[in-house]
Simulated assay, not measured.
Amino acid sequence: MSRWQGIDEFLAVAETGSFTKASKLLGMSVAHVSRYVSQLEKRLNTQLLTRTTRNVVLTKEGEIFAHQTKQLQHAMDDARQLLAERQNSPKGTIKLTAPVMYGENYIMPAVHHFMQSHPDIEVISHLSNEQVNLLDEGYDLAIRLGHLKDSSLKARRLSERRLVMCCSKAYLDQFGQPHSISELHQHVCLIGNSSYWRVKEQGKEKHIKVTGRLQCNSGWALVDAALKGLGIVQLPDYYVNKYIQSGELLVVLPAVAPATEGVWGVYPPRQFVATNVRALLDHLAASFQVSDL
């Protein structure tokens, strides 16, 4: 019996939490999946799954084995992809995730253009402001904004963003122009997820606490409040650029703006980046007209 036998079946059960769902995923009978997983457990002399009448869950040993064998699956996928690269243009399915607003307005339009040029590409896109685990949830690509946390993932810089402090002329007419960071505490600030804003003073970045009448986790809602003269807001440039260009919002304290941050394409640390993923990364970088670091 092959030492690989049962691994695909086990991982399918581990990922779906069900022998029935795993059988549908693999296109085989439930009995076949169950038999191969049982044989695998027998060869390993270890129980990998706890089976009940309602669900199937991994044992501690099963979690360890699933993590390690998933890497074997990735290695096999890489090997197949390497061979496919010698024969085919980009094709297949790309599963990607991106933040909601940035994904809707920037990433997905570029992805749609990419799909027009590559009819054999399929895309499964999940827009969410939660950072998913690429390896555990099977994502090929994630778009991340700002400073990246240390991780084992690989990343490519696609574009950049900057934080902008701005408000309406009506607000300045009523409350006056702040001339320094220290004067911000005298002003009404529109607060997002955090009541601390990033600024740069004497070449060093720091966080300052701000206060105001409105706190909201929606960037668009804060833009609307700023346009209505309710306060000063600090947001990424892609929220406010068009209003600054039209003169509806005015930049405040531009000298203390923090350094620009990256927009990143993050992908699993495999030896070979899939042809379709690499092609999409190239397209996104070209679309944003920013080269790699």
Rank of each mutant, 00 (worst) to 15 (best):
S29V: 02
E63R: 13
H113R: 15
A84L: 12
I107A: 03
H112S: 11
L58Y: 06
Q47S: 14
T50N: 14
L58M: 08
A66F: 04
L83N: 09
V57W: 00
R54F: 07
L49F: 08
D120Y: 08
K24V: 05
I94A: 03
T93L: 15
D120S: 12
R51C: 00
A66N: 04
N88M: 10
V111D: 04
N88S: 11
T50W: 01
A98M: 02
M76Y: 12
I107K: 00
K95T: 10
S29F: 03
Q68K: 13
K24Y: 14
L26R: 07
L83R: 12
L83K: 11
S38E: 14
E63H: 06
E61F: 04
V33Y: 04
L44P: 08
D120N: 15
A79Y: 12
L26N: 07
G62H: 05
V37N: 05
S29W: 03
N105P: 00
Q87M: 06
R43Q: 13
L83A: 11
T69K: 11
N45C: 01
R86E: 14
H67L: 10
V56W: 02
H74R: 13
N55G: 09
V111T: 10
D78P: 01
T97A: 06
L72G: 13
T46K: 15
V111K: 05
V111L: 07
Q39R: 15
P119C: 01
R51S: 02
Y106K: 10
Q81S: 15
M108C: 00
P109N: 09
T46M: 15
H32Q: 09
T69F: 15
Q116H: 11
H112M: 13
Y106C: 02
R80K: 10
Q39S: 08
S38I: 03
L40I: 07
Q81G: 14
L44N: 06
H67M: 07
L72M: 15
G27E: 10
P90Y: 04
T52I: 08
M28P: 00
M76I: 10
L72F: 13
V37Q: 04
Q87V: 10
M115H: 01
Q71I: 09
R35C: 00
K95H: 10
